[in-house]
Amino acid sequence: MNVVVLIKQVPDTTNVRIDRKTNNLVREGVPSVINPDCMHALELAAQLKEKHNATVYVITMGPPQAINALKDAISFGLDEAVLLSDRAFAGADTLATTYTLYKGIKKIEEKIGKIDIVLAGRQAADGDTGQVGPGVATRLGYSLAAYVTSIEKIEKDEIILTRRLDRGYEKVRVKIPCVLTVTPELNEPRYASLPNLIRSLRYQPIVWNKDDINADPKKAGFFGSPTRVVNTNIPPARKGGDIISKNESPEIAAQKLLDELKKFESIRLIEGLRVLVGDKK
């Protein structure tokens, strides 16, 4: 069984700050991490390796420093890691990203044979699109199950699994080859064993550029991206308002709260608060 895991390096969004003077996102000093959802894809890949003797490649498209994410990924005990890096890949939207990843997967296939399962995270913490998994599945012509929450069994040419949709869970049979996108519900990522940790520190990922994967520069990166970001802005920060002090009794505090709420026009939208504004309807 051959498995490819798609991972993305993202800024740790819990540490992203906004410089209120320049109104810019402060990324300096913000550590980069493996996208949280991808950690669950890596854990699943490690299990596939243990239980099904899978050969696992990890792949990312990104700048040279994404090497660090790949080294961390190897500490899950996986076989090889590939960085797709080229100026021609920069500025990619999801359509161009899936093109480059697709070409990378095809190149891995030349080395190890048909890829049975491609794993991705449900969504990336920075872009938050959740489009890359479905896009890669479409390019490969594979079956797709997004939002996987548990796996019941894996057989030679099918997987029985449960996935999450808005209205509930759905148990499905998925034909292999397939792309799965995984949710945090699926598993708990492991801590690396000492030998795997040592290997990951010494490990040097494979690096491929556009010629290595035979990518058409018109389909990759900025030139292959139909969408354009025309503007970004930082939404105004909320400001804290009035505080009702702890010295007030609960009854007075409650009354003051209701008096304050009256000042907001939008409470008319709340059925249960119309009494405050004397609307008897």
């Binding site: 938050d128 489009q131 949709l165 808005d166 969408t227």
Partner: peptide
Amino acid sequence: ATLEGRELAGMVATELETGLTAD
């Protein structure tokens, strides 16, 4: 942009090779 809609839109836009803006 429900879970279902996001999965479906991602597939459709890729097949059509057009741009898709999420959520």
